[in-house]
Design a binder for these strands. Structure first.
Lengths: 197, 197, 197, 197
DNA sequence: CATGAATGAGTATTCATTCAT
DNA sequence: CATGAATGAATACTCATTCAT
């Protein structure tokens, strides 16, 4: 079942895109409650009322934005994942895609990070997180059975890997020091050593 | 040197404490913009106007709260740190204190995490972060010179350690699975292996 | 003299009719300010913009609707009125036509009733009321001279008759009890006794 | 069970009164949907936000206003009603009190008239109407058993009497002709003859 | 000092109207 | 001519802050 590529009616996909992009910027820099709808409208170059032709409410907007990006991230991370490769190679793939997503969609990365478990996200939005976690757990358990990852709670391993990645990019953006290829590799190797057997 | 029991004038330290505690709870669960001053007042058991006798504005309140806890965390983490111990022992101390802080002050941990880089934090509040980071860098460089930590950017190592810790406690609180002593030890060991030589 | 079948340009009389009918329904059930133009458009089965090809504004629409129905009511009530009949017979005719109008055009009756003196009605709309009243006064004075109606202010008599009719149909619609032939006759006889000498 | 004379807390009864009075004026002249909350605030001489300390919403305000006046009208009409008097005397009392209420509280009379069955009135508000109607029916049936009123549906008689009164005052206010004592008496006598046996 | 009633600037949202297609 | 997407002014309502008590 392909996702509906167009909003209902003949509303302009461009405008919808502009609104989503503007709100991504603003939600990241000011937060959900700190962002006003007219601000979003202005940055998107549309009238304030137009927002409501595309999204029923500010809450709907943030939820659609979340689902759009969470879905896109899931696709990037998981599509044609090397299921049968050794754990180190799988980890390399995983890390590389994470880096890719972060580099290509930095704002979206922070948006997903910040809005992780906000109370204005609805059930559907939250379910996406669970699906990705379940996927990760299955993979880790496979690798653990092959004695390629530490035999501890997969949840712990997931937390460590994602947390380490986030911690690294956060420190980098806090300090303003850009991450070059060496830094990415160093961080990858460190994180791998955290979880390998 | 005992702390001044009655800061400015004859305002009650109890009321100040109550306001800080109430706002900690609410800022964590609803965010800064999602929390109203009257809500804070009610939960603190004081009148709404009273808040303004202790804090010049909502922004001042969140900044003082941030600094209070950031300072307290720094004290807990760094006081009488075993400067001359081997890196593994230093790491054990560091990790243990982080766990201690998280367990004793869970709300404060999340508050500091969430408000990390919010735009309503002022320069003074942000400077605290820098001071802790500088302290960490110095330590790490010492250990690196003794060939006890990987010879890579200390910022990366800090990001990995703090990130891994945060990732672990976040996954735990998301899934509702409590972290027992074994889990803490597993996570510590993983993280150590990420940074050790 | 047949009415112009195609008023201004080549706009469709059907669409105009549909818009008037839809707005009648909505103005009666939700009031003027409680009714939105897009609602009217949807119920009329036309585009929202189309409304503005037939009526310059929402106010124009309500005024034209008012005048249409006030005029139609006047025609039904007064056409070939038995000028020379005795007052009782005239009253019977008048009452019967009022009943007929109410039964055939219930929504329009309530619309005229509700919008009687609304501030969005313009002078032209209000003038129609005056013309009907003047007509009624003349009739009543005639009958009074023939000593067939009470010799009191015609305005009072008009108010009593129209008020009694309205009061009866209002109570009936409030309670949901339908008015049968007997009820109409009873009400007519009561009202006649109110004004006869 | 006496009605709560004061709103909860220590809000000023004067301000509440001012808001109710201002909204009475405006709801009568512009209707519910045509009246804005800031308009009410300005006319009441309070801040817009203040309205919401006294009434949860615009709907709550109109409902409380309705109940206040419907209750007051009921009290004026029914208190110490001459239960055992002959029907003509009862009618005289009833009519006189209606006149009194209209003269003393003209705005309130029109407010009750206009908002009779508006869809923003809640169940509690509507129930008051039913109670007064039931009271009237009981009275009429008593008088009918004593053969002092026409033996027709009490609902019809109520509709005629209230309608005639309303019709008279409406015509008077439309034409701007004031109702003097003679006019009130004439109208009373007419209406009595409508319902007497 | 403490309070909470009062406020008005600010927010999300609606809707009459316009105009490009 | 008909349409409905787009708009922005207007509206109900909220909330940080003030100040009289």
């Amino acid at each position: 079942m392909p996702l509906d590529p167009l909003p209902r009616g003949s509303l302009s996909p461009d405008k919808r895109e502009a609104i989503l992009e503007a709100s991504l910027d603003l939600f990241v820099s000011r937060g959900f409650h700190g962002t006003t709808v007219p601000e979003v409208a202005e940055r998107a170059g549309v009238g304030a009322g137009t927002i409501y032709r595309y999204f029923a409410s500010k809450e709907t907007l943030v939820n659609e934005l979340y689902r759009d990006w969470k879905g896109q991230m899931a696709r990037i991370m998981l599509d044609r994942f090397p299921i049968d490769a050794p754990a180190r190679e799988q980890f390399h793939t995983f890390w590389g895609r994470l880096v890719q997503f972060f580099v290509d969609h930095t704002k979206a990365f922070w948006f997903l990070e910040i809005h992780h478990h906000a109370d204005y996200l609805d059930e559907r939005s939250r379910a996406l997180e669970q699906r990705m976690t379940d996927f990760g757990i299955a993979f880790i358990q496979g690798a653990q059975q092959r004695h390629q990852l530490k035999p501890i709670s997969p949840l712990l391993l997931i937390g460590i890997v994602l947390g380490a990645f986030t911690g690294v990019v956060r420190k980098a953006s806090e300090t303003g020091i850009p991450l070059d290829a060496d830094a990415w590799n160093d961080a990858e190797q460190c994180t791998w050593e955290a979880i390998r057997i």
